[in-house]
Computed example of a mutant assay.
Amino acid sequence: METLLPLVIQLISGAVGGNIAGAALKDKSLGALGNTIAGIIGGGLGGKLLTMLTGAAAAAPAAGIDIGTLVQQIAGGGVGGAIVMILVGLIKNMNKTA
């Protein structure tokens, strides 16, 4: 169960990041459902990539959740979700103009 919590945090953060990016960049937005799905995918990928790069692989202390690791998971998931949503939005717009 402990190893599932970071993934859940990253997926939720990705969904939020994708929707925030969609609200900020209306021309790239995929709609609420599209932003959420792209954000979830990006959150999972971004969170795992950041964890691999920093080497902070889910070594949660016995007393509870490490705040630094939690912030890293939220940031990685949110940024990853926003990036994937923007990339998908760019691809969608390229196909629309062609």
Rank of each mutant, 00 (worst) to 15 (best):
S29H: 00
Q73G: 05
L7G: 14
G47N: 05
L53G: 06
S29M: 03
G47A: 04
K96N: 14
A60H: 14
I9N: 11
N35Y: 03
T51A: 15
I37T: 15
A75I: 12
A75H: 09
A62M: 04
G22Q: 13
A58Y: 11
L5W: 09
V8E: 00
T36Q: 09
N93K: 05
A56I: 04
L45M: 00
L4V: 15
K92Y: 04
A23H: 10
G77A: 00
G44M: 04
I74A: 08
G18A: 02
A58V: 07
V16L: 08
K48I: 15
G14M: 02
A59C: 05
M52Q: 11
I67V: 06
P61V: 10
G31V: 05
G64N: 13
V79S: 08
I83M: 02
A56V: 03
V79R: 08
Q72I: 13
T51M: 13
K28T: 03
P6Y: 05
K96G: 11
S29V: 01
A24K: 04
K48Q: 15
A38I: 03
N93H: 01
L45W: 02
G46N: 02
A15F: 08
A98N: 12
G17T: 12
I74L: 09
G43T: 06
L11R: 00
V79G: 07
P6T: 04
T3Y: 14
V71K: 10
G17A: 13
M1E: 06
T51I: 13
S29I: 01
M85I: 12
S29T: 00
A32I: 09
A56P: 01
G64H: 12
A38P: 06
P6W: 06
V71W: 07
A63T: 06
T97L: 14
V88Y: 02
G46L: 03
T69M: 14
N95D: 09
L50D: 00
A32R: 10
L87I: 12
I37C: 13
L87S: 11
I37W: 14
I20M: 15
G80P: 04
N35D: 11
P61K: 11
T97K: 15
L33S: 11
I40L: 00
Q73M: 07
L50E: 02
L4K: 15
I83K: 00
M52K: 12
I86F: 00
N93C: 01
I74Y: 04
N93Q: 06
I40F: 02
G18T: 02
L4P: 13
L11M: 05
G31C: 04
M85C: 14
T54W: 08
T54F: 09
G81D: 07
P61H: 11
A15P: 06
K26S: 03
I12L: 08
K26V: 02
V79D: 07
S13N: 15
L33V: 11
G55S: 09
G46Q: 03
I91F: 05
P61N: 11
G64C: 15
N93L: 02
A38C: 05
D66P: 06
L50C: 00
A21N: 08
I12Y: 03
L49W: 01
G46D: 03
L50F: 02
I65Y: 12
L33N: 09
P61I: 09
L90T: 09
T54P: 08
I91P: 00
D66N: 13
G81M: 07
L7Y: 15
A32L: 09
Q73E: 07
